[in-house]
């Protein structure tokens, strides 16, 4: 009858929060790294040099054509066989970053291509080099366009970090698995984990919705209010 055991819950709250903290750290590190790496990938995909274009295209297709779970297993269990040994957290960070960068690069590309030709023309006519025009005119506008999509991807990332339990990173799901193996209180433990995920994801999703409204309403909004 007593599916939810408050005593067990209280007892295990400490380790579970420690696991959640690992999950959050992992998410934040991967957000920062993938935002930067994806930009390089996106710009590489639009490069005039064909080999760079092909490399980027191949990378994106391979990542999108295979499961994230397999990618993580590959990095942690297969790479050591060719002499590349990574600790679990590093393997998780690299796997998630490579995976999310492929998708975010496509988001960036769409954002950059959404900037009208007239903006490029105006920048060029003012004597800006293509690099300067990208940095000062195109990217600041493109970033604004892609912020809502990025937000949704990062909420997805937060939940996908559960997959790194497979490489034995002690994030929140892995922690729950270990605890459950000792006390068999599946309902209690996994319910808490579910509440923890939801308690972060739900406000984050609301925040993304808010950002979406702001970015859609023009550049002068803040001052007009």
């Amino acid at each position: 009858m007593d599916l939810f055991n408050p005593e067990i819950a209280l007892e295990n709250l400490g380790p579970l929060f420690a696991g959640l903290w690992i999950t959050v750290q992992l998410t934040l590190v991967v957000i920062v790294l993938s935002m930067g790496f994806a930009l390089l990938v996106a710009l590489g995909g639009m490069s005039r040099h064909r080999p760079i274009q092909w490399l980027v295209k191949a990378y994106i297709e391979v990542i999108r054509g295979t499961p994230l779970l397999l990618q993580l297993i590959y990095i942690y269990y297969v790479l050591p066989e060719v002499g590349i040994r990574l600790d679990a957290f590093a393997a998780g960070v690299i796997g998630l970053t490579l995976n999310y960068s492929a998708y975010i690069a496509e988001v960036y590309r769409a954002g950059i291509q959404a900037i009208p030709r007239g903006q490029h023309d105006a920048a060029a006519a003012l004597g800006m080099t293509p690099t300067l025009s990208m940095r000062r005119i195109v990217l600041p506008q493109a970033i604004r366009i892609v912020i809502p999509s990025l937000g949704n991807y990062f909420i997805g990332l937060f939940k996908d970090t559960a997959l790194v339990s497979v490489v034995s990173i002690q994030e929140v799901v892995f922690t729950a698995q270990i605890l459950a193996a000792q006390n068999f209180q599946y309902f209690t433990l996994y319910t808490i984990v579910g509440i923890m995920y939801f308690a972060v994801s739900f406000p984050a999703a609301r925040l993304v919705g808010y950002l979406e409204r702001i970015t859609r309403s023009g550049y002068a909004t803040r001052r007009r209010r």
Partner: peptide, 19 residues
């Protein structure tokens, strides 16, 4: 770019930088 910097251009659709 250096040559373009010496010649101003005004477009039909203004093309101001909205940001």
């Amino acid at each position: 770019a250096a040559v373009r910097a010496q010649v101003g251009m005004v477009f039909q659709h203004f093309n101001l930088f909205p940001h």
